[in-house]
Design a protein around this nucleic acid. Structure first.
Lengths: 345, 345
DNA sequence: TTGTATGCGTTATCAG
DNA sequence: CTGATAACGCATACAA
């Protein structure tokens, strides 16, 4: 039918030059009169600028990428919301890419994003060791990148993380206050830095009260997924209980554990108290509600997005390398629910 | 440092014209010799085409949009995976936009997508009545659009949906087989077409066995969220139980109901059997596991994506309006778990 | 304050 | 099979 109007169409109809229209849209100097005239014409034509042309001209993509371990992760929806909230301010699109699609890990998609500079910047959630190649590629390509809650020690990268150590201590205080003395811990993957810090915080917190965790009461589930929590619980609960509370490496594991406990008719928290980390929405829905330490995931998403924009901007400004890596740490907050209680005396 | 190589850089270094390089990349006729030469140069330079320029030239956006009610919906992750899987085949980016960000409904983002033709096509998940303006805008702008599991009657639109009626009947058969005779139903929003169909299927299925649901045993929770299920359950369970089974409008509602039941010490399924619809992952994790009817969400995502591409393609080909609206319906499959059992005699 | 000219990196339409 | 050349729609430096 009628072709989509271009900046030229508008210019003609308003009797000005295309560049004036451009200036109008970019908020540059335009006389009040023509400004009014243009606003009229634009409304009349229903004109809007072409993102593609704009991006080409500006030498950017107008799009940031978010790579997430697996959309299955109950964790990431909140993060996404935070990112979207922040994004809605800027003129940027959110492009999504899962690292683990049909059960198999495949980073080739994100890899191409980096190499083809398909995005102006990248946010990687919960990066692990296996994401290293991606980080390196981004560094090489000087693609701005922000890591959210990386589960490994990262230097030279912008990072938004939580204070896992403090979180561990918070759990310690909570359990001690309830009267627990024999406590177990079951972390995620063997080399998870998060689990390590959480455990360390837990131990230090307990130590202040003269309580220690026996090394035989420390386990790792091999992954952070609920399934791993189930498998662990099946083994753990088959043996006689020697602890009155167990701290799981994250909420998914804790829910898996709770499921098995309930299935086995083990009362929670009567027989054993359970706690997790993260505060995924499901924890509040279950009965008993899962005691956990909340990560402000939405805030973290916003923050990550904001930092990413800063980096992108600063890179545009001066062509020099930006080496002042920013690292921001959020506090975690204990959320006490019904899955923890006084131990049976 | 070194500027990003353009198609011209490659052409120069290979001693050919830019257009030849373009042809090379698009798989058009290029002599074997120059083909080899180019492949060499490209590898050497690490060249890759600019998406932005490409899209501008092709007159497309290279990006499809996915609008989802709320990323909180436990439903949509699977859908997303399906879409991503299909997308990875084509050279398209997935742009995300939540209709409900900070608790408030706000379709302005997607609206702009449509009006500015920010995307080449749109997938809307679980559209309700309130999405009507979006649909109309898309129609007006002739923007290809596919609806996934819309909760209202939609004509003149491409739709991927489930057979909710059959799902209701499947539940009926299941409950009857277990020996239930007194059954309640609690749907989602008042005007939900999904709930209506599910209920109708349930009733017809039961009728075949001479069982009917009393109108006083039919409720609606006002929404499809777990919270609504909780509130409903609190009222429902406060009264003496006259039914041995309750069919909830979806899984989220069912889980909310189960939570309250467990909290109140009501045995499931001993005292009451519970079932839902959708088969969200959480249903399998809970104990007792939630009996439900599975929607093949991933498949639906793939399908929606495929259809969308077809429409986009056919629209490019001939400039005429494409009015043969495609509607594809997937079967739902009963997943029997522990939340349903024989009624106490 | 506004108009002119040029560039952004590809693709497509022609000739050759 | 290949090489010029003109779009694609906008932004910006420069001149007026």
């Amino acid at each position: 039918m009628k072709q989509k109007p271009t900046i030229e169409t508008v210019a003609e109809k308003a009797g000005v030059a295309p560049s004036t229209v451009s200036r109008y849209f970019n908020g540059h100097y335009v006389s009040k009169a023509t400004k009014a005239r243009l606003s009229e014409v634009v409304a009349e034509l229903g004109y809007s600028r072409s993102w593609t042309a704009r991006n080409l001209s500006l030498g950017r993509r107008g799009c940031i990428g978010v790579a997430v371990d697996s959309s299955h992760d109950l964790w990431f929806t909140e993060l996404l919301v935070g990112i979207e909230e922040e994004l809605s301010t800027h003129e940027m699109t959110l492009a999504l890419n899962s690292l683990e699609l049909s059960g198999r890990y495949d980073n080739s998609g994100v890899f191409r994003w980096i190499q083809e500079r398909h995005v102006d910047g990248l946010i990687i959630a919960k990066s692990q060791r296996r994401e290293r190649p991606l980080l390196n590629a981004a560094m090489d390509g000087r693609l701005p990148i922000v890591l959210v809650a990386p589960d490994e020690a990262i230097a030279h990268a912008h990072v938004v993380r939580c204070d896992n150590y403090a979180a561990g201590r918070a759990v310690a205080e909570h359990l001690v206050a309830l009267g627990h003395k024999k406590i177990a811990f079951a972390g995620g993957p063997q080399h998870s830095v998060d689990s390590k810090h959480r455990l360390q915080g837990l131990r230090d917190g307990l130590a202040r009260h003269g309580i220690s965790i026996k090394s035989t009461d420390i386990f790792s589930c091999g992954s952070y997924e609920a399934k791993a929590g189930i498998e662990f619980a099946q083994e753990f609960l088959a043996k006689p209980l020697v602890t009155t509370a167990i701290v799981m490496g994250n909420d998914a594991l804790a829910l898996g554990f709770m499921r098995v406990a309930q299935q086995s008719g083990i009362r929670i928290p009567g027989k054993i108290s359970i706690s997790g980390f993260d505060n995924i929405p499901e924890g509040a829905l279950w009965w008993p509600g899962l005691t956990t330490v909340a990560q402000p995931m939405r805030e973290m998403g916003r923050s990550a997005c904001r930092i990413l924009f800063e980096v992108i901007e600063s890179q545009r400004q001066r062509e020099q390398i930006q080496d002042a890596r920013e690292s921001i740490q959020f506090p975690m907050e204990l959320v006490a629910r019904e899955s923890t209680g006084r131990p049976a005396s």
